[in-house]
Amino acid sequence: MNIFRLTGDLAHLTAIIILLLKIWKTRSCSGISGKSQILFTVVYITRYLDLFTNYISAYNTLMKIIFVVSSLATVFLIYFKFKATYDRNHDTFRMEFLIIPSIILALLIRHEFTVMEVLWTFSIYLEAVAILPQLFLVSKTGEAETITSHYLFALGSYRGLYLLNWIWRYYFENFLDWISIVAGFVQTVLYCDFFYLYVTRVLHGRKLRLPA
């Protein structure tokens, strides 16, 4: 464990908590893409199957359980409890456009051709692009609530911090995993446009509104 990985994990955890609190406190999931949340749930479930086969640490197990349970809770809030507030008309990105290529790529480029390895790799590829329905929704409505911007910033920072973690691990532990690195890089790049708007607008007290 190094500082980048720990802060990355905490940013990830913060993002999830911000989102759950936003939905719970406002009793509304407007502006939130249910599809991105379904995709994240698929990511966690397929990646953390090793909870049943491989013990790493109490920290690792606890965080995995938190991610799976909280993402399921988020999906439940969006599609059941507060479904009247769900922006389904704007949440029109097709999930299969992300899931099918991720499956194909995971079958082709992975460490080993085993069920667990292919599912792990699929989860890495899918995570890289799972935010696209959310970014698409923001671009369709042209704006995001400030709290949603904080959520996106925390979620985007997490993989960026992991990139620093992988550089660290390469130098100090001689570890290198190109699948994680390339996918993590793509994932971080997808947020760049948003990061720019976040820093120039939201941090200056304005609402995130996309340029016309």
């Binding site: 994990d9 491989n54 995995k64 991610f67 992991y162 570890f175 290198l176 995993d177 994680s180």
Partner: peptide, 10 residues
Amino acid sequence: DTKYVGHDEL
């Protein structure tokens, strides 16, 4: 034991 880096991460 984890064979690949990344598999011990979240």
